[in-house]
């Protein structure tokens, strides 16, 4: 029975990992940018929300409704300015730029909020659960998994059913040819980054709602997200879901037997996939 419980918790944790990984997957899939500051942006969003809740009397839903679109806008703006600049000067410089941003964000957060862990107060939602047979399912975990699936469905619909989405796939496939068709690749890149940042803000808020976060928590989040993307298969969003879920399940199942090996087990799964199935569990040619 306890195994079943661990399995359920693992799947729900996997939902959170997926939410983190979706943005990373999109930015890599469309622009071939590995955003090393991805986790830090999530933490930044979380602290921004915590600040908003503390300074204003806004209800949490309003804070979420402000933070997520604001982050999407920040993403668009950053892509059009900083990331585009660095893309123009080669793939290595995007790594350096995002690595630099990671350091800047972490230290700015430390300066502004101290190293103390904080959490986003969402009231009962953080701890409430409902029973399914003998196991208790936390609402917030279900919310995370549902948001992850919802994000992927929404993004897939956008990519496959809208003219802008198709253009995004065309640009990701062959930017030079896509430009000939009249695509404004910079605008498209901006949109893709906006979507990625919106998703990462959701992930950050959810993380801060279910457990406390500290300014340096982003690095570990980046590693889990990165592992989820690679395990699932680069460039495939459904693969990212599979990757996130496998990572969550393996971590919690192993934690059930030996809590200290939990994180290590996740890394080992990542290593095994890299060694024996480098294309990932659900490989995709392109987005």
């Amino acid at each position: 029975m306890q195994i079943l419980d661990a399995l359920a918790q693992g799947i729900l944790l996997g939902g959170l990992y997926t939410l983190f990984a979706v943005g990373l997957s999109i930015m890599f899939g469309v622009m071939r940018i590995v955003n090393l500051a991805h986790g830090d942006f999530a933490i930044l969003a979380a602290f921004l929300a915590i600040l908003l809740v503390g300074e204003t009397s806004f209800p949490v839903w309003l804070v979420v409704a402000i933070t997520v679109p604001a982050f999407a806008a920040i993403g668009y703006f950053l892509q059009r300015t900083l990331f585009q600049q660095s893309l123009n000067s080669g793939p290595l410089s995007t790594l350096l730029v995002t690595f630099g941003m990671s350091i800047v964000i972490q230290n700015a957060l430390l300066e502004a909020f101290s190293a103390n862990p904080q959490r986003l107060d969402v009231g009962q939602l953080a701890t409430a659960s409902f029973p399914v047979g003998p196991i208790a399912i936390p609402y917030i975990g279900v919310l995370g998994l549902m948001l992850a699936i919802l994000c992927i469905v929404a993004i897939e619909l956008f990519l496959r059913r809208t003219a802008t989405g198709r253009m995004t796939r065309a640009v990701s496939d062959d930017p030079d040819t896509a430009r000939l068709t009249g695509a404004n690749s910079r605008h498209i890149y901006g949109l893709a980054t906006g979507i990625a940042f919106g998703a990462v803000a959701i992930a950050g808020l959810l993380l801060a709602a279910r457990s406390s976060v500290e300014p340096t928590a982003g690095s570990m989040r980046l590693i889990f997200a990165f592992e989820a993307v690679v395990i699932g298969g680069l460039g495939s969003l459904w693969g990212t879901l599979v990757g996130g879920l496998s990572l969550g399940v393996v971590q919690t199942l192993v934690a059930h037997f030996d809590p200290s090996s939990s994180i290590l087990a996740g890394h080992l799964l990542f290593l095994l996939v890299l060694a024996f199935r480098p294309q990932g569990l659900i490989p995709a040619r392109s987005l």
Binding site: R166, R169, D173, D174, T181, L287
Partner: peptide, 26 residues
């Protein structure tokens, strides 16, 4: 309009979607 000596379709997209991209923006 131009074609390339070495065909460069958007490989991950269907034939129809390839044409749709050009019909939409071109």
């Amino acid at each position: 309009g131009r074609t390339f000596q070495i065909p460069r379709p958007f490989e991950g997209m269907s034939v129809f979607e390839n044409l749709l991209v050009f019909a939409t923006s071109g």
